[in-house]
């Protein structure tokens, strides 16, 4: 399963949603009421584990993780950074 699909499945399972024509990769998951504080912290933890990356405080200064698309791009960047080291 590719990265995007893995993320999609994680979000679907964690928040009991299904991505479709209504909830798209671009949907703001906060705005449509999918993400709550507990779930957000839990999701970030699962992402760290699933993709073996470490999220640092400064990561949250500029990256805005509001949609599947933006989370995916962020994870891709973190994986690339990991590869660089």
């Amino acid at each position: 399963m590719g990265r995007t699909q893995r993320l999609r499945t994680m979000i679907e399972e964690q928040f009991l949603v299904e991505f479709d024509e209504e909830l798209t990769d671009q949907s703001d998951l906060f705005k449509v009421g999918v993400i709550d504080s507990f779930g957000y912290v839990q999701l970030l933890g699962s992402i760290e584990e699933e993709f073996s990356i470490q999220l640092k405080d400064e990561d949250f200064l500029k990256d805005i993780l509001t949609s599947l698309e933006s989370i995916d791009a962020f994870v891709a960047k973190k994986i690339a950074e990991r590869g660089d080291r």
Binding site: F15, L16, F30, K31, V32, G33, V34, I35, D36, S37, Y40, V41, L44, L55, K56, D57, F60, D63, I64, L65, T66
Partner: peptide, 30 residues
């Protein structure tokens, strides 16, 4: 720091007049 990212999303009013409760109402929407 992670929650700061979440709160950032709730620093502007989306439901007119219900700003105070918008984070809580995420649970309600569910």
């Amino acid at each position: 720091a992670r929650l700061k990212g979440l709160f950032e999303q709730f620093a502007v009013e989306r439901l007119p007049g219900l700003f105070s409760h918008e984070l809580r109402y995420q649970n309600g929407r569910f």
